[in-house]
């Protein structure tokens, strides 16, 4: 069979168990006594970028938060179902939430640097883990900042306040902060919604580089961004998962009419 173009993206059904990063089974989430996620089943592939798209309020953030149990910070929440990461159900009673969250990094919609120095921001997670060896911390800071493509810009002012950085730099710092813990999974909730197009592209490129190290899930409102950056894409609507497939198919020939309507801007 002649192949002009190399494709390393399997179709969704072909993904084996070993290639699954997050396996979500029958997940239902209620927030404030209101159902927000209905029976979600999705297998998020390992070391790939998966985009979650859908209308505002459809539950993307909630789904993302359920991967590191951030939903539990809400006062009234209820959740059923299972989320398997590396052969363990994170909703198991024995699971330690804080420990879990060190393995699953998260970057929020708005950069939220702590009002500390850049250095302190990056080592925050490590220090919480009890790492106090200065040498090791220094190494991690450099590695994380390099991975986040920020090292060159800040290496001379590591001890300045992180609040002095620009929005794009802050967002990369947030990525570095998450990467310092060397997570297996990185969750990004609209990481570029407040950034200019060029910075956005830089961060997308960064994300693309990161998939060598971890599984990435990104929520975005920007359809083009989802198309550009993702290997797989999931379309959600009103708390349901409508379609999940490799983004080549989803953006050229979606299987569901609903998806097509949404991505072509025909939504009623």
């Amino acid at each position: 069979m002649l192949k002009l173009f190399e494709r390393d993206i399997l179709s969704v059904d072909e993904i084996s168990k070993a290639q699954t990063g997050i396996d979500v089974r029958d997940l239902c989430v209620h927030l404030n006594h209101k159902p927000v996620l209905n029976n979600i089943n999705i297998r998020i592939p390992k070391n790939k970028i998966t985009a979650l798209i859908g209308q505002s309020g459809c539950g993307k953030t909630t789904l993302l938060n359920s991967f590191n149990r951030m939903n539990e910070l809400n006062k009234n929440h209820a959740c059923s179902g299972e989320v398997w990461i590396k052969d363990r159900n994170i909703y198991d009673r024995k699971e330690k939430v804080a420990k879990l969250r060190t393995q699953i990094g998260m970057v929020f919609q708005r950069p939220n640097p702590f009002p500390m120095s850049i250095y302190e921001n990056v080592v925050f997670g490590l220090k919480i883990q009890g790492e106090n060896n200065r040498r090791k911390l220094d190494d991690s800071v450099e590695r994380a900042l390099r991975n986040a493509a920020l090292w060159e810009e800040v290496k001379d002012r590591l001890f300045d306040s992180a609040l002095m950085l620009s929005g794009g730099q802050q967002q990369r710092l947030m990525i570095a902060r998450a990467l310092a813990l060397e997570p297996e999974i990185l969750l990004l909730d609209e990481p570029t919604s407040a950034l200019d197009p060029l910075t956005t592209l830089y961060i997308e490129e960064l994300i693309n580089e990161l998939k060598k190290q971890c599984t990435l899930v990104i929520v975005t409102h920007n359809m083009q961004q989802a198309a550009r950056v993702s290997d797989y894409a999931a379309f959600m609507h009103k708390g349901e998962l409508i379609e999940f497939s490799d983004s080549d198919s989803l953006f050229t020939m979606p299987a569901k009419q609903q998806t097509e309507d949404y991505i072509t801007g025909r939504y009623g």
């Binding site: 969250r101 702590f114 919480i128 998450a178």
Partner: peptide
């Protein structure tokens, strides 16, 4: 957002409040 950021880095409630 700062609290969420701290939790997301694996801090417990006590550590978040304190730090």
């Amino acid at each position: 957002g700062l609290r969420a950021g701290s939790y997301a880095l694996g801090a417990t409630k006590y550590e978040t409040v304190l730090k």
